[in-house]
């Protein structure tokens, strides 16, 4: 109860400090593994943004934008994992990667993978160049057979 009230307080007395500084930005990358002790060979970007979105699509997204809003939630989870790692944030990201694997064609081409891991790649500007660094590796999560079908 106290924890929930602590979560509620920033809504009742907001700080309104939107974009006060541009923090390092997380990208979620995942790897499919062949066992609990396998090492990731290839990392895939999770939900890469499309090359282009038309104005018509933007207008439609004013009313219906579940995929992107979920991605924004995952950005929050990633930021929370960097600031104060919790099982909840890790579970939320793993759960959604598994759901995407289940529904997207990527899964159909991968039949041998039994496990999943994600990592957080942080991007920040250092001087005039962009700097990439891996700041977090998740636990290795077994994929249920159903998750890939």
């Amino acid at each position: 109860m106290l924890h929930t009230l602590k979560l509620l307080l920033p809504a009742i007395v907001p700080s309104w400090r939107f974009f006060d500084f541009i923090a390092p930005s997380p990208r979620i990358q995942f790897a499919l593994l062949n066992g609990a002790d396998d090492t990731a060979q290839k990392w895939h970007e999770f939900r890469p943004r499309p090359a282009h979105i038309s104005f018509k699509q933007m207008l439609a997204r004013m009313l219906w934008n579940p995929h992107w809003n979920e991605s924004l939630f995952l950005v929050s989870c990633a930021e929370r994992l960097i600031a104060f790692p919790t099982r909840h944030s890790e579970d939320e990201i793993l759960k959604r990667i598994m759901a995407d694997l289940k529904y997207h064609s990527l899964a159909t081409s991968v039949t041998t993978a039994t496990h999943l891991q994600f990592r957080l790649l942080m991007i920040k500007r250092q001087g005039s160049a962009l700097q990439h660094s891996v700041n977090y590796h998740s636990r290795i999560q077994p994929l249920s057979g159903q998750a890939l079908k």
Binding site: F19, I22, S25, P26, R27, R49, P50, A51, H52, I53, M58, R61, W68, S71, L72, V75, I123, K124, R125, L130
Partner: peptide, 14 residues
């Protein structure tokens, strides 16, 4: 510029 260049917010690469 940072928001557009590397933040997670722009909805497309373009």
């Amino acid at each position: 510029k940072d928001v557009f260049q590397f933040s997670a917010y722009p909805v497309s690469e373009s």
